[in-house]
Write a protein that binds this DNA or RNA. Structure first.
Lengths: 141, 141
DNA sequence: GACAAATGATACTATTATGGTATCATTATT
DNA sequence: AATAATGATACCATAATAGTATCATTTGTC
């Protein structure tokens, strides 16, 4: 089971890389060099981040991407939202047809609590918190 | 994202149904009637539970399945273990090759905490706790 | 203006996990 | 012997994930 899919993961790395860069604008070419992710896949991911207002893009020679807002305002939860939909681990297993007493179900209740906890914890993990401080992940090699 | 896959879900229902039954031994035929799950799929699931020591099976006419241990000793975590492998939401995204500084990664640390929390909470959700008490899920219809 | 270097958009493909089916063998009761 | 159950195993369908490929558009530089 994975909490983060690969696109979310790549997105995190790319954003951290951009936020650490001296230049505001960073091109895919530059990112691929460090991150060693498949180039067309990374492009698709960055375009999604652009469409979702997390990155701003600049076309043409010398173009690339830059953060659309300060790195401490981009949370891992936001990225999960973009690539995996809202963080929600209960799913539709509990839809009424199958489970007529969902309101009193202990299992459902616990899963709800776990979900809450997960969101609360991940909200504070931002691109900023991953970029500096003790943690130096993910870094270039 | 789903914390429980469908086989785990069906397994929970089947076990609750067995634990509620007046008869020790319950056949697939009987289970399918109430749970409305696809019969061959449910059979496969029960066979897995048997192989993993959660159910005991009886062949031949009048046969079926019964719990291998008291219902309060069968936790949802056990079932996740059978069908989805050990509950582990960090996955291998953080394997060393890709992330050389996993030990100091804030994201990894948080995900680890979420995992711990999930296991702790779900350990106490047992077939017993789902079978009786206020919660009557999942019930027969 | 031509060219090059970048992104935008979109359609396609490959792989894997999930959710099943189908079939035949074996066992036990009657 | 017939029947009603499980055991084992191989197969299949669908969807999600991960990734490719292609062409259009924009923009800076010569």
């Amino acid at each position: 089971m994975k909490l983060l899919t690969r696109d979310t993961d790549y997105a995190v790395r790319a954003l951290v890389r951009i936020s650490r860069s001296k230049n505001q604008i960073v091109s895919v070419t530059e990112l691929v060099k460090d991150l060693k992710t498949p180039r067309p896949f990374l492009r698709k991911i960055l375009q999604q981040l652009n469409r979702n207002g997390i990155l701003v893009s600049y076309k043409g020679q010398g173009g690339g991407f830059s953060l659309a807002r300060p790195s401490h305002k981009i949370s891992v939860v936001d990225l999960i939202g973009v690539f995996q939909g809202p963080l929600e681990i209960t799913e539709c297993l509990f839809r009424k047809k199958i489970c007529p007493e969902r309101s009193t179900c202990a299992l459902r209740r616990e899963i709800g609590r776990i979900e809450e906890f997960a969101i609360k914890q991940l909200k504070d993990v931002t691109i900023m918190s991953l970029s500096n401080g003790g943690s130096r992940w993910p870094r270039a090699r």
